[in-house]
Write a protein that binds this DNA or RNA. Structure first.
Length: 571
RNA sequence: CGGGGCGUGGCGCAGCCUGGUAGCGCGCCUGCUUCGGGAGCAGGAGGUCGUAGGUUCAAAUCCUAUCGCCCCGACCA
């Protein structure tokens, strides 16, 4: 491709609307342009990258035996009513009516459609297992789209669905997809981690997120350096402290704490550390009030509470509910004298002579001890994991990372196939619902994640596998016809051997071209100059390195081809 | 949804408080010079100041409404 024939508008200045680096560079490099909040057009360069990602995903999905389909973006409400999500899915689901007034939505995901498709065609266990996937534009009316492609409303996603006759088969499909995802993200050149994740509203018992490690990531994860257990902080299991009888000796004392509601206020007022205070949080667990105790410097985690208490629904109690249970306004709850179940985080087991709320306005109790001043129904792991916390598997200290979620695999079971009556006949002649799994990859998010992980102050440094072009040929002296001719010929020859090459044939000064080259981040740069040609040489430089080397012009094509191949992860 | 900010040539911004002829940098066009890290000089094109209404002799500027966009938080298969 010749630069002068391409649509590749770069910009020198940072766009006003962008904050995160990938957003800035995508805009500046002429990869995308914003059309509306969370809605983008892809320009030629950006679209080439998207297609690179798609191809890797396709190849690996096909290799795993999955088959590609294409489902509609617009979906009738009736299908969603079957699964019950028409009313359950919040305002994120963009709903609208057609000319006849019938309700439709823009698909944020495709479980309903795929089940609608499959239940009519897959009738026998002999046809199973099946894994279907598609690469599709999805629309989720996000409350707050942000950071360019990282959290857009319209985005491209690969979604896959597996159908098995039983749990064992479904787990096998899940494992196969898990392995496939590892291959995909490795080929994309990512430093990433599969992490155990919350199943969220989707339910099911097994779920992993694939997190690209980047400081700008939205998700917090912890990883154990000893046993490599890795999980989202919302889920990471922590080693407990065995509860033992209190050795506290202090006397329980009521102290006045006027208007001191928060941990900071109380500890500041009393002059003690937050780790000397026990927070008493009132949760409604399946509509029953429960007290959760956590150390003052830690955070309670609803997902873990739900899990620990085997509950269906957990929410913070409303103000009136707190008053009813503790007979004190919010901010003064404490375990002493409570009649509701009390569950304490395992860290509380190791505490003595601590501070709690007095269940009375403007008062706290100091010198409290569990077992002596109140009883704890159980010690559980209900706090948010943090770096330094002990790993639940081996006890070593967790390391903390920030991650960008680029993929997510779920074991679904019969959660959708059941209600939607998607069944097949098993060998014994019984109709059974498919045991399903679903597997998503954020294609367009991968594009920005790749930049977050691979850039410097000058611009993008594409991994070879995702680069819009593999090679950039840059003639330095435009007025030197020999240079132009050699660069043109090199371009043609590289193209002829199947290398994706961009020739910067613009009549611009060298510095201008070099800066654009660094911005758009094509991994291999070939500089053709008067000086070099005198020695029958061209210069080769990797975008990620600051060392250039001269190679003989005659060997340039084979040398470049070799470099490109070497930089492509196995396929 | 709560909090904050911004809409002025293609891009980035000033002007608004204190109403009076719309300005700067980049980019774009023409010419000459220049040519290995975002060149110089000269000339030039391009703007209903987000939209609607109001106040005023006069509105980018003041008032009201409305639309859009960004950031923080809450939210999130």
């Amino acid at each position: 491709m010749r630069y002068t024939q391409s649509y590749l508008p770069t910009r020198k200045e940072d766009p006003a609307d962008a904050e995160v680096i990938s957003h800035k560079l995508l805009l500046r490099g002429g990869f995308i342009r914003q059309v509306g909040a969370g809605i983008y057009s892809f320009l030629p360069l950006g679209w080439r990258v998207v297609r690179k990602v798609e191809q890797i995903v396709r190849q690996e999905m096909d290799r795993a035996g999955a088959q590609e389909v294409m489902l509609p973006a617009v979906q009738p409400a009736s299908l969603w009513e079957e699964s019950g999500r028409w009313t359950k899915y919040g305002p994120e689901l963009l709903r609208f009516n057609d000319r006849k007034g019938n309700p439709y939505c823009l698909g944020p995901t495709h479980e309903e459609v795929i089940i609608g498709l499959v239940r009519d065609e897959l009738r026998s266990y002999k046809q199973l297992p099946v894994i279907l996937y598609q690469i599709q534009v999805k629309f989720r009316d996000e409350v707050r789209p942000r950071a360019g492609l990282m959290r857009a409303r319209e985005f491209t996603m690969k979604d896959a669905y597996s159908f098995d006759r039983d749990e064992a088969g479904a787990i096998e499909s899940y494992r196969r997809m898990f392995d496939t995802y590892n291959r995909i993200f490795a080929r994309c050149g990512f430093t990433f981690r599969p992490v155990e994740a919350d199943t969220g509203s989707i339910g099911g018992s097994m779920s992993h997120e694939f997190q690209v490690l980047a400081d700008t990531g939205e998700d917090a994860i912890v990883s154990c350096p000893a046993c490599s257990y890795t999980a989202n902080v919302e889920l990471a299991q922590l080693a407990g402290v065995p509860p033992r009888p209190t050795s506290g000796t202090a006397e329980r004392t009521r102290v006045e704490t006027p208007r001191m509601r928060t941990v900071e206020q109380v500890t500041g007022f009393l002059g003690v550390g937050a780790d000397r205070l026990v927070k008493t949080l009132i949760y409604m667990v399946d509509e029953q009030p429960v007290a959760i105790l956590v150390r003052g410097d830690t955070e309670a985690n609803e997902i873990k509470i739900k899990r620990a208490l085997d509950a269906v629904e957990v929410r913070m109690a409303e103000e009136e509910e707190v008053i009813k249970v503790t007979s004190a306004p919010v901010g003064f709850a404490g375990p002493v004298g409570l009649t509701i179940p009390i569950h304490a985080d395992s860290l509380v087991a190791a505490m003595t002579d601590f501070v709690v709320g007095a269940n009375e306005e403007d008062a706290h109790l100091t010198g409290c001890n569990w077992g002596r001043d109140f009883q704890v129904d159980s010690f559980v792991d209900v706090r948010m994991a943090r770096p330094g916390d002990p790993c639940g598997r081996c006890g070593a200290a967790f390391e903390g990372y920030k991650g960008i979620e680029v993929g997510h695999v779920f074991y679904l079971g019969t959660r959708y196939s059941g209600p939607m009556k998607a069944t097949f006949l098993d060998a014994d002649g019984e109709a059974r619902p498919f045991v399903m799994g679903c597997y998503g990859i954020g294609i367009t998010r991968i594009v920005s994640a790749a930049i977050e992980q691979n850039h410097d102050e000058r611009g993008i440094i594409w991994p070879m596998a995702l680069a819009p072009y593999q090679v950039l040929v840059l003639p330095v002296q435009y007025q030197d016809e020999a240079v132009l001719a050699a660069a043109g010929q090199l371009h043609d020859e590289l193209e002829a051997v199947g290398i994706e090459v961009l020739l910067d044939d613009r009549d611009e000064r060298p510095g201008f071209k070099f800066n654009d080259a660094d911005l758009i981040g094509i991994p291999l740069r070939v500089t053709v100059s008067t000086r070099g040609l005198k020695a029958d040489q061209v210069e080769i430089k990797l975008r990620g390195s600051d060392q250039a080397e001269m190679v003989p012009l005659r060997q340039a094509v084979s040398e470049i081809g070799e470099r490109v191949r070497r930089m492509m992860p196995d396929r």
